[in-house]
């Protein structure tokens, strides 16, 4: 992967690499991608991709309210901690800078 590809990838991942990181991370990633190349040796024709460990299907959740408002133990949570974790909270809104 060349530097340009690396930077495009970084911007997709919302990471901004410093010069040193471009070299260090770039080298490690290149090494891994070389290693991954080995996979092309294998004939994978006719194999379905495994996307889930076990292909169990049809798990649906009934459309009923279930959060701490009705004290359902399955989804109990502490709202105060959620607000405390907020970096900047005003009137129960999370505040972030505006795009000017």
């Amino acid at each position: 992967m060349n530097k340009e590809e690396l930077l495009t990838t970084a911007s997709l991942a919302l990471l901004e690499l410093e010069e040193g990181e471009v070299d260090r991370l770039g080298e490690e990633i290149a090494r891994m991608l070389d290693y991954f190349e080995m996979m092309t040796k294998l004939d994978v024709d006719g194999l379905e991709p495994t996307t889930h460990a076990f292909q169990k299907t049809n798990r649906l959740r009934a459309d009923v309210l279930n959060n701490n408002n009705n004290n359902n133990i399955n989804n109990a949570f502490n709202r105060n901690l959620i607000m405390e974790n907020g970096n900047d909270v005003e009137d129960d809104f999370f505040v972030i800078p505006n795009v000017l």
Binding site: E90, D91, F93, F94, V95, I96, P97, N98, V99, L100
Partner: peptide
């Protein structure tokens, strides 16, 4: 949803 208020935005999820 974001409500824009001057140089900040208020987030409501």
């Amino acid at each position: 949803k974001m409500i824009h208020a001057g140089d900040m935005s208020l987030q409501d999820f």
